[in-house]
Amino acid sequence: MSEVLLDVKGLKKYFTTKRGLLHAVDDVTFTIEKGKTLGVVGESGCGKSTTGRAILRLHEPTGGQVLFEGQDVAKLNATELRHKRKEMQIIFQDPFSSLNPRKTVSQTIEEPLKLHKLIPDKQKRLEKVLETMETVGLAERYINTYPHELDGGRRQRIGIARALALDPKFIVCDEPVSALDVSIQAQILNLMNEIQEQRGLTYMFITHDLSVVNHFSDDIAVMYLGKLIEKAPSEVLFANPVHPYTQALLSAIPLPKLGARKERILLKGEITSPINPAPVCRFANRCQYATDRCRSEEPQLKEIETGHFVSCFLCE
């Protein structure tokens, strides 16, 4: 059993809206081991990104604990949090809006180093910038270009370089490839894989693309409407999905084979509103196995075999 880097317990993030309290992330609990990748999947609006941002406190969590190397990030004050940010970074989805259009490549990568006064010497800082650019595969001739002069793949490399500049231990990857062309997706994924191996990084990889997550993750967590409904090592999850939603999700992966047919589970019904949800199973409305119990009680996350957690009454 390797060391646990991140231990999230009962994480909650509610947003106040005009119509009530929006439960974006509701009582999510999981751990990530050092050097491993946790893939987080789910449809859009299920709270994947919000979970990632709440862990980094880019959104203030409403409740719960985020233990990073045993220290509760949710309780840090502003200065402590700023220091902690050196160790926890994020790569954003959209490489077009995540880079300041008025800063050159080197200014963007240099900024975190400047902010934390890590390398006071200008010359050495430039060396570090060049080194980081090399790591992410950006040619040094781009050092003084502006983001709008570069394509999506290169921009995303800048985003990765900015996150890596501080030598973090943990990176939240918020759909880092979903805005890119398929051919470039593969390049970026391979790059991220290499960097992880070199530096022993830990990733939380948020995506809605199941084929990506299968390649990339050691563990996979499936989220539905703010709830974590299933978490297992990836091979286990793909071989033996237990939650009806996970099953439906996996059956939707297209097979890259002509004429291949497979039983699709089509989900019917509307998604339950995440605003003031009733304490019942949130998937019950669309679940073909739903019983009265599902509509009157809320299932809890249970470990059905080692490392395989499910939140469903079916497996009890």
Partner: peptide, 11 residues
């Protein structure tokens, strides 16, 4: 814009 969030993320 996301780069504002990114700036917050780098401290």
């Amino acid at each position: 814009n996301e780069y504002i969030e990114a700036a917050r993320a780098i401290g």
